[in-house]
């Protein structure tokens, strides 16, 4: 992961064991790092939302909430952009198969909006083979 910036990027690596407490811990750590580099409220909101979606998806859909399975989180936080990677221990999935939640016939279905929100706020979102490793990049405006 390479991020251009005046100061060397900060690295965060966390192995998450438990969804509720560890996701919150990661959120706090990332927020502290981006605030230290002057990221504004809108950036903090977007990053918090996307990390929540990515990490909860990894526990819920990737690891199927199975006790003992973990989620690996890595972040590289630079002055101009941040790269995040989230890897679960599931079999992976193909995001192409996820229905468009904004289609008229899907608007009143209560689930399936996490990936589209990540795509809306991040400048890059990709699932790496075999589909259990998510990489996303946030670029400051």
């Amino acid at each position: 992961m390479a991020t251009a910036g005046a100061h060397p990027p900060s690295q965060i690596r966390v192995t998450l064991h438990e969804m509720r407490t560890d996701v919150e811990r990661v959120q706090r750590e990332v927020e502290g790092a981006i605030r230290a580099r002057g990221y504004d409220d809108d950036a903090a909101f977007a990053i918090r939302l996307c990390l929540e979606e990515a990490l909860v998806n990894a526990f819920r859909h990737g690891n199927r909430l199975e006790p003992g399975l973990t989620v690996e989180f890595r972040a590289e936080i630079g002055d101009r952009s941040c790269t995040f990677e989230v890897q679960d221990q599931g079999e992976g999935f193909d995001p192409v198969g996820v229905p468009d939640p904004t289609a008229d016939e899907n608007l009143e279905i209560p689930s399936g909006r996490g990936i589209m929100l990540m795509r809306a706020y991040m400048s890059e979102v990709e699932y790496l083979d075999p589909g259990n490793r998510l990489r996303m990049v946030f670029t400051r405006r």
Partner: peptide, 17 residues
Amino acid sequence: VQHLSSAALGVLINVHN
């Protein structure tokens, strides 16, 4: 309200429905 997630949207849709 400062933050919400897609799961919160899901709850609102259920209540709306």
